[in-house]
Amino acid sequence: MTFHFEVLKILYLNQIIIGILGNSFLIFLFSFKVGTGQKTKPIILMLIHLLFANIIFLLFRGIPKIIEIWKLNYFVDYTASKILSYLQRVTRGLSLCSTCLVSVFQAITISPSTPMWAELKARVPKCVLPCCLLCWICNLLMDIVVPLYGTSSSNTTDSKESWQIGFSALDLHPIKTLIFLLWKFVYDSTFVCLTAITSGYKAFVLYRHNQRMQSIQVTSLSHSSSPEAQVTKKILLLASTFVIFNFTSSIFMIYMTLTKVASPVVLNISAFLSLCFPTVCPFILLNSNSRFTRSYRIY
């Protein structure tokens, strides 16, 4: 057990540091583009919002885990513990929602220029800020149950029937807690599934575009090295990373809800997986900023 926690100490600390630095660096790059005076593309604002959501999620989710694993002393009163735990849940949902929003926007942007899609494309840039605001409102309302039904972790023992959420805990036995956790699983899974669907659609559109280009011109590039094929692989990499980490984390959450056993091992695995995507997301986005994606107006 000692070795288990020693490994977790290193993993969580590296995860938080790398994730925050990576997201902050990419925010700086995008902000530099905005500050040059050029016309700002809506996708840049969405990506900045996503990266900011990743940072605050890493802070609110990662810091409590570091305090727990490293057994650090902290002074948080009853009210503050419930507020911090509430913000932790909100920022997780915000990260999921922002990733889904970016994926949907990209799917609309690269869709065929039919009359229906052309009208939708014209409206989308005006909806960027309202959609980001809606993400905040929905997640702030969704997790309001945490401060209402959560109890301070200092008032609970290390019972396997109590689910630690940041600086507070949820009792797994009341029916209200069960309903909330099941609904939260459905809520998070909706964003994960929608991101997977839109990413698959983007890959399909790029694949069709590549097929048309190969049919009308002869090029020395092979199919596997074409810009469209490279972008398709990167889209699928980002989507698969997002789906695997978040859906697997949600599976552990629903397992603990149904069995009413909050195993420390399962809790640590679920928390680690939920932090993986915000950590690797900026590096995947940075690698995806190729010549073709810029010309195709994805990034």
Rank of each mutant, 00 (worst) to 15 (best):
G22W: 09
F277M: 13
T79F: 09
P115I: 14
L273V: 15
Q15H: 13
V186E: 04
C131S: 15
L182G: 04
L13H: 12
S159P: 01
T79C: 04
I16F: 14
V186G: 04
F185D: 00
S103C: 12
Q211L: 12
Q106G: 01
L134N: 05
F32S: 14
I20G: 09
F5D: 11
C281R: 05
L133E: 07
K9W: 15
N289W: 11
T109M: 05
F52W: 14
S222M: 06
S274Q: 06
V145F: 09
A196W: 04
G200L: 07
Y74H: 06
V192Q: 00
M256T: 10
M213I: 14
T257K: 01
S153K: 01
V243F: 13
C97F: 08
N210I: 07
P264Q: 14
I110K: 06
F272A: 15
L11S: 15
L84E: 03
T91K: 01
L148W: 11
F105R: 02
I17C: 11
K160F: 05
K71C: 06
G200W: 06
I66L: 02
S153P: 01
L8K: 13
F5H: 13
M142N: 07
A122I: 07
L236S: 03
V261M: 05
V231A: 15
R291V: 08
L133W: 09
V280F: 11
F3R: 06
I63H: 01
C276F: 10
L238P: 00
N23K: 11
L275C: 15
Q217H: 14
E228V: 09
D158V: 08
I254R: 10
K126I: 09
I44P: 00
T293E: 00
Q217G: 10
V261T: 10
L120C: 12
H49K: 07
P278D: 11
K233F: 14
Y207R: 11
L94A: 01
L101P: 00
T219F: 14
I66V: 05
I66P: 00
G19P: 03
I197N: 03
L11A: 15
N246L: 10
A203W: 01
I20Y: 13
F32I: 13
C193G: 02
V192D: 00
I235N: 02
V145D: 04
N246F: 08
V146W: 05
V266D: 06
P278F: 12
L87R: 02
C193I: 10
